[in-house]
Design a protein around this nucleic acid. Structure first.
Lengths: 226, 226
DNA sequence: GAAATGTGTGACAAAAGCGTCACGCATTGA
DNA sequence: TCAATGCGTGACGCTTTTGTCACACATTTC
């Protein structure tokens, strides 16, 4: 999710804008003065900054300048918020490095649109932190499991167990070892617990359950897909 | 601990090599002929096989071939041991699927080094994909959560929810958005579900639950630790 | 082919997880 | 200060998850 930092001292405006961005699926943070704004920029590295020109402590121009100089912030896009009377040629030319500006009063809708345009322009394909194996996909952030890109709900233990096996596909995993890793048991066999879970996994997986191989006398293995 | 199977009929060599591996922290098993070797491979599934080319019963090539064919062994790496006069055959060995070879006489040290290189290459140990934030640690592979390195069991939803918040520490997250992301709801508020989960999270977290901040009118935020 | 060993399965009960509600408290804004 | 709004909390009941058992079935061993 893309994050927006709004630097705006007028609380109502900040809230209004923030609310609208959030409703559009952005994560929003607000700073109420220049100092706080700059801190949050460097610390959180938002994907876009909405920056009011007139601010207490440090004004918008100064923030822009400082952002340019710091490698941590110089590539973060900025939309300036200005009153009509504040528009000057520098701003118009966007010489200072802002990516766009919008004059108060403005419609939140327009602001969102401009923001989206800029974000789209700057977007880098995010690295998906998914573990892939054959027809399986584990989204480790959303803790969601997919078979052929169809989500399949797994319980916590099932997810742990199967992820562990899939990450070691082709290698058989010892029963005790599985118990130790997934359950945290240090001792020996607990009845037929592991078998039962494997059964449930296989059942949920349906056809592709055949990827799970039983290694008699050892434990289980997920077959390495071709 | 990684396990090595040495298949070598010359007892002195086998012992020497075994001793050296053991001294380097490996668990070692020895087979003195091809038949025994193959059995042990299939039964114990060592992490690496040191295989002499010239063996009674079944020679090294045959063993390699058989290993390839059996899914239980085809992914186990092999280092071939050959006499100088047999070097010409090395290509044959590598073609058959050996991962490396070393000629007699060899230094145990070199053998260990080669073995380590191969084991490292084959090791599936997934990169520790832990997400760290202040006192918190999320092991995304083991799906285990830690506070100050003490494991704290979280339910699936709790893990999702808190991970999501922590990954966006410092940014407030909209209530509806959280519901959408964590629960998959597309619609609006469901009673006080989210609050209840936040309550449970805070309770489980104890003192460090204070990292969770309520942003009135918006949602929640995890405080960015210093 | 019979005994021994190991794995699969259905059923069951206990525990944990979960969503919802009613209500109290806190904050906000007039 | 009062009303309105939003959040926190304890309690309740419903599901899902889990571990265990008895026993069926499969494979190996002798």
């Amino acid at each position: 999710m893309e994050s927006i930092l709004i630097i705006e001292d007028e609380i109502d405006i900040a809230k209004l804008v923030g609310f609208n961005f959030e409703r559009n699926g952005y994560s929003v943070d607000i700073a109420h003065d220049g100092r706080e704004g700059l801190e949050k920029i460097l610390k959180n590295q938002p994907d876009l900054v909405i920056l009011d020109l007139m601010l207490p402590e440090i004004d918008g121009y100064k923030i822009l300048k400082k952002m340019q100089r710091d490698t941590r912030s110089h590539s973060i896009p900025v939309i300036m918020l200005t009153a009509k009377s504040q528009i000057d040629d520098r701003l118009k030319g966007l010489e200072l490095g802002a990516d766009d500006y919008i004059t108060k009063p403005f419609s939140p809708k327009e602001l969102i649109l401009r923001a989206q345009a800029i974000l789209k322009r700057n977007r880098v394909t995010p690295v998906a932190e998914d573990f892939l194996l054959g027809p399986f996909r584990f989204d480790k952030n959303a803790l969601t499991f997919f078979v052929h890109d169809q989500p399949l709900p797994l319980s916590l233990i099932e997810f742990k167990l199967f992820l562990f096996l899939c990450q070691r596909a082709g290698q058989s995993q010892d029963r005790n070892h599985l118990l130790k890793v997934v359950w945290g048991y240090s001792d020996e066999i607990h009845s037929r617990t592991l078998d039962t879970h494997m059964k449930r996994l296989r059942k949920k997986l349906g056809k592709v359950g055949s990827f799970i191989e039983t290694i008699r006398g050892i434990g289980y293995r997920v077959r390495q897909p071709e």
